[in-house]
Amino acid sequence: MRWGAFFSVMVIVALIILYEWPKMKQNPKKDKMAFFTLLFIGLVLSMFDLPHMGGPTAWIQSLFRPFGRFMEK
């Protein structure tokens, strides 16, 4: 857990909500849901030590391993 990154993302998320919320009052509920879900994913991800963690990028990389080996030759 990296508190610095987490708190700065939290501040940014708060700022985004403050900026965006008044503008999207009229938008359908779905928009609001998507808005908050994405922000929430971003906030959750910021709690991890992303550079040293497996994730989609690493999975794809292992999926394409044979090609990677071909290119390393």
Partner: peptide, 30 residues
């Protein structure tokens, strides 16, 4: 992303996606 979620407008998710982009730029790339 907005079209995938059938949103009425893509603008509300521009900022949240920015955060995701920032996180993907680090993810699994030490």
């Amino acid at each position: 992303t907005a079209q995938w979620l059938n949103l009425s407008n893509y603008r509300p998710i521009v900022w949240p996606i920015g955060i995701l982009i920032l996180e993907f730029s680090f993810w699994s790339l030490p």
